[in-house]
Design a binder for these strands. Sequence first.
DNA 1: TTGGGGTTTTGCCCAGTATT
DNA 2: AATACTGGGCAAAACCCCAA
Length: 333
Amino acid sequence: MTYAAFEDRDLPATLSAKKFAPGLARQVGLVLFDGFSLLGTGMVAEVLQLANEIAAADDGGEPTYRVWLLSVRGGGIACSSSLELATIAIDAASQLHFDAVYIGGGRSAMQALEDIRLIAWLRRVVATTTEVRAIGHGQRLLEAAGIETARVVPEPPTHVASTADDTPGDDHHEALKSALMMIRRDLGVEIARKVGERALPSISTRLSALFADATRATPADKVWASARWLEENCERPISVGDAAQTFAMSERNYLRCFKLELGVTPSDYLLQVRLELTCQLLVNTDLPVDKVARRCGMRDGDRLSKIFRNRLGVSPTEYRNRHRVHADNVIGQ
DNA sequence: TTGGGGTTTTGCCCAGTATT
DNA sequence: AATACTGGGCAAAACCCCAA
């Protein structure tokens, strides 16, 4: 991958219009905020990198996609698992014309709204960029900024809006789908299919659905949409029946299709999402275990403790201590 | 593709102990 | 005293197999 953020020596002298003229590399921006989901943004970067590799293997040409990691002020941005990525400031990239921009979430995304430069930049990007996609709560950021969101991934049908700032329920699927569709458009179906198979071998067969006619709402489509719905509503007490009803499927059929498509049951999938969120809050906050549990849809600390023992083999506080020690060691090196 | 029925898993409540 | 953790028992929910 050509990670522009790691080539600061190129800036700003090389940001000429000629260099990024149509026909040359596609410019893709990933806008990051502290606490962003590495999984969501990482998947987008990964499939674009694979597209570069596969396309270059075919024709030996220059990389098709150039990815720019951006943030409001530039510099290091920490993801939800405390890894830090170097970014360039949006001001420094103001001369770039992006072919696609992905707006990431993260706990500091909403705070960033106070920065008028960000609002102005976002509005300009939405007005001039063909493909603008929100990853996770990037959608809420755009909405809060009062930005028209016609080109942004629509929210799934939901009874109650999510309230958490930092859920891990980033819409990886929609971001991934968007990136794969862009690859299909630019490089063809075969390369897009190869990228999907190499990036996500375990679910490659399911990716074939992305290349089919997206206008038909098959049970598989509904199931994938419901998975995203589960991610975004994980902090609420929801049941399989709720999900099935929301997506107009019988409960039995929903269970069957879900297992068939994702390889896990809805309850197990929901539990995994909740566990991810719980782990994040345990490591990144000082909230008591009981409060963490309530914020993650785990009812209370008792229940959370049982689930942790059962799934991870440690208690919540033990998990918190271990991962904080680990993070401190990494930083201290 | 759907639903009946049996099995397994989970949720809930309660009680008790350990630690800070 | 507050918080964290564990275990048991029962009911409900979730799941799976199989037949239509």
